[in-house]
Simulated scan of single mutants.
Amino acid sequence: MTTVPAFANCHSHVFHRALRGRITGADSFWTWRDQMYALAGVLDPDLLFDLARATYAEMHAAGIRSVGEFHYLHHRPDGRAYDDPNAMGEALIAAAREAGVRIALLDTCYLAAGFGLSTGSRSRAVEGVQQRFTDGDADAWAARVDDLARKHAGEYDVVIGAAIHSVRAVPRDQLATVAGAFPDAPLHVHVSEQPAENEECLAATGLTPVALLAEAGAWTPRTTAVHATHLTPDDVATLGDARSYVCFCPTTEAELADGIGPSVALRDAGARLTLGSDSNTVIDMFAEARAVEMHQRLASGVRGAWSAGQLWQAASSTGHESLGFAGGDLIEIEESVRTAGADEVLWAASAEDVLSTGSRSGAGSRTDAARDLQAAIDACWSRT
């Protein structure tokens, strides 16, 4: 057996796991999003717990010991708060604990449906299922998250962090409130995932998303830019100068036709790479790590931009650090991989080669996780 560092999955939308294999043929990210919203509209705390528990058990079996959950399903489908305003977040924390995975709950501020270009207003009001994402304004969001953070302060397996969903979803005059609300906690933000996002931001503000977030003071060494796919050279320099983390999610970015991000330029500028499974189309951190190098080869025509050691660091120690955790455990790889050491394992192994050690609840075997997961997915789709 080969012993290697446990993985950190730094960007997850756990409920997207129910979309795997069902949403195909959508012609762009935006049509895929419409179908994802249909799923988001049917979840309640109990069903979210069941789906998350099984998905986190799948992550545990794949060698993941820390997850950054980018969480924006806060309220009832009509926008009213649950009796416990953090019921959905608490369901995710409980699910991760039962699966034996540490969770950085990145509670996400989401206040608008987009830039108000067609109406001349600063932003468009939330609509449809987005009503359950919003707290009304950044101050109300911060107050709700502060209650959650106080409750879980000092717990070894839970970090309460903050997130800006995107520059589309948080108006310009409220970005700074979110960026500064929890100065000692991780801050994550989707940025420049799609060209249309950049174009709309430029038209509305005259700035790129990275520059707009810089204006708000968002870029610090505790901040993670998620995706960062379509950047200008100035954007790359901004993220590098801030020593921010940049989380690439290559399997999702490929599945959604997002594009190939400038991983080497960001690294050379001083940004720190982490990795995530995002929509959980694949839960395999070996695949995510390899894809950074493989995509770079496709884009450049040159091999060897990323070494195995650099990718291990991104997938483990740097990732745990970006979520507010110390380094993770060690995991063991099946002897059948037939490799000589950790570097070779990175290029050769898959999630299936991780020796499953079970979760604290005893629900960690692949068979049990698959059974529970299928039941939760079936329950989700029976409601749509």
Rank of each mutant, 00 (worst) to 15 (best):
Q194A: 11
A162E: 10
V236P: 07
H190S: 07
H188Y: 10
V159R: 15
P209E: 13
A181V: 10
D241M: 00
N198E: 01
L187R: 08
H190G: 04
F182Y: 13
R222L: 15
A237W: 04
A162K: 02
A237C: 05
G180T: 09
E215I: 02
D184F: 01
P233D: 15
L175V: 06
H188L: 12
C201H: 03
V210M: 12
G240Y: 14
A176I: 01
L212Y: 04
E200Y: 05
V191F: 00
A237V: 08
V170D: 12
A179V: 02
A176V: 01
D157A: 11
D173A: 07
A204D: 09
R168Q: 14
V170M: 03
A142P: 05
E199R: 15
R168G: 07
T208A: 11
L239Y: 12
A185T: 03
D234E: 15
T208M: 02
I164Y: 06
G240K: 03
P195D: 07
E193A: 11
V167G: 01
V170Q: 05
A163Y: 08
F182S: 12
D234L: 03
A149E: 09
H165Q: 12
T229L: 12
G180W: 04
A214L: 05
D147L: 14
A218T: 14
G217W: 11
L231W: 12
S166I: 05
G240N: 08
V158S: 10
I164F: 04
L202D: 03
R222I: 13
W141P: 11
Y156S: 14
H227N: 08
T205C: 06
T220E: 13
P186L: 12
S192L: 01
R144P: 13
A179H: 01
L231H: 11
G161N: 06
T220C: 07
A181Y: 02
T223F: 05
G217I: 08
E197C: 10
H230A: 02
E197H: 02
H152F: 14
Q174C: 04
E215F: 01
L212D: 07
K151S: 13
A218H: 04
A204K: 10
G161K: 03
A204M: 00
C201K: 08
T220R: 13
V159H: 11
A216W: 06
R150G: 14
L239W: 09
A142I: 07
H188G: 05
P171V: 03
G206Q: 12
T224P: 09
H227F: 09
E215M: 04
V191W: 00
T177P: 02
A162V: 06
D146W: 02
A143C: 01
T223I: 06
T238A: 10
V189W: 03
V159W: 08
H227P: 14
N198M: 04
G206P: 11
V226A: 12
V226T: 11
D184A: 11
R144C: 12
L239N: 09
L175M: 02
A225S: 06
G180Y: 00
L202T: 11
A228N: 09
L231G: 14
P233M: 08
A218E: 09
C201I: 01
E215G: 02
D157I: 05
